[in-house]
Design a protein around this nucleic acid. Structure first.
Lengths: 257, 257
DNA sequence: CTTATATTCCACAGATCTATGACATTGCCC
DNA sequence: GGGCAATGTCATAGATCTGTGGAATATAAG
């Protein structure tokens, strides 16, 4: 029963805190910042049982951090707005900045804050404009479909080895994934390098790209082509703030971060 | 025992989540984003008993969100870095965006997202440059001392009525406080208006100002003068990122938000 | 060394949160 | 309407968190 005092304000905010006090809920939220998913898919992705996953999702729904959409017998959950993703990003940033353990874990898998492996967004835009690089989205196809960097090729990590031949060995690859805590892109880069290709990771992932105000394309996957920079063919989706799809050559910095 | 897997990452982040699951801890963190304080002061400000406050602070310390400094027999807590404040800001933003209750509470006290009462940072810089406005910091003096907008006058809300005479009735007042969830500035504006003065609130508070990359002055309070825009006299403090103190006329937008 | 002050540590009872399997719902299909 | 499949709800046992008063520490001043 809020009476309008300051204490009630913090009590409300604690509803949000309740969501991120449980590791699996952070995991779920992180996934939902990439793309909407059914309960089934979420349970599978996080290794939870159905009823447990559902319970967690209820907690998240009560905090209004997620919303649902029903399709037949299936319920799709999604992040309830850009602020949610921003919050998750802030949580991750804080973790990397303050918790040495986080950096350790990342470093242990080769995703640490090493060296010149990282490409900034500005640099990517620069080099994509001149067609020097191939941008590779190594996330699962659903996430690519829900939103990707204009002109990026979808090549999920799990298929990377099998489809290596589709890449032009002459071009440098810039891979990206879910964000700084995601291991997909670093792994992809390691794989590519082991094959003698030039490859680097994009700093951050798609959520940060979107949060920086840069254009995002939604729509179906197109198979990776071998050489010429593909022309973007997606449609602007619900989340994309009225930006026409542009490929690397047209991309521009929106509000710089 | 982290083994380096993805689950461990989220487990680490949940340490941070643990901090913001309790309303009082959010309250404490919010206070610490304004200025460092002793346990005693924090307990008093939040209405907690000593041992309880201390316990909460330990939780926050274990999550590395706060750090301490000892001075004699007293221990001062402070936010462990700018990322912490950014996270708290993100939490507040998320609350306002997603939880209708938060907006309701704010509105109930007149701090709602009403109308033209709000001045943007850009507008303030504009108008301060031409000397049209007085910038008023209505937070407690310790918080002013820990960091304030260059050229701002310190006039804590509790003393506002008593010191009304110190304000030049000819100038518009722009009051600011801790942030969007803080009620000090709106109350101050209400009081000033009731006295026939022109007054508005600055959007957001000092943490957001700092996060926007704008200059912050630290140092002792100088009493509110009556007319002429005072020349800033503070020292850049630990938190101020190497910005020379500037008053309104020199202030510039750093990185726009 | 003794006293006083500000914190931290500890143990415990009461409250809250979690995971899970059984059971109830909801919408689709025949 | 009956049968399925995907979710949501519930009750429960076990684990974790909270508030608190009192003991234990640490620092400063006598």
């Amino acid at each position: 029963m809020p009476d309008g005092g300051r204490a009630d304000l913090y009590e409300q905010l604690a509803r949000i805190g309740k969501v991120v006090v449980h590791p699996k809920r952070i995991d779920l939220l992180d996934l939902l910042c990439q793309a909407e998913r059914s309960v089934e898919a979420l349970a599978a992705a996080t290794g939870l049982k159905f009823s447990t996953a559902s319970a967690h999702l209820q907690v998240m729904r009560q905090a209004r951090l997620v919303e649902t959409r029903r399709e037949g017998t299936r319920v799709y959950y999604r992040a309830a707005g850009e602020e949610v993703c921003r919050f998750v990003t802030a949580l991750g940033d804080l973790g990397r900045a303050r918790l040495a353990e986080v950096d350790q874990i990342l470093r242990a898998i080769g995703a640490g804050s090493e060296s010149a492996e990282w490409v900034t967004r500005a640099e990517l835009l620069e080099r994509a404009r001149s067609g020097e690089v191939v941008v590779l989205d190594v996330r699962p196809v659903e996430e690519y479909a829900a939103g990707h960097i204009p002109g990026a090729l979808s090549l999920p990590l799990e298929h990377l080895e099998a489809r290596l031949g589709e890449l032009d060995p002459g071009l440098e690859v810039v891979a990206y994934c879910r964000g700084p805590l995601c291991l997909l892109a670093p792994e992809a880069v390691a794989t590519l390098r082991a094959r003698g290709l030039r490859a680097r990771c994009l700093e951050d992932g798609l959520p940060e790209w979107r949060q920086a105000g840069l254009p995002v394309t939604t729509g179906a996957e197109r198979p990776a082509a071998s050489s010429s920079p593909p022309s973007a063919a997606g449609r602007s989706g619900r989340d994309a703030p009225a930006t026409a799809p542009v490929d690397g050559s047209e991309a521009r910095l929106g509000r710089p971060r």
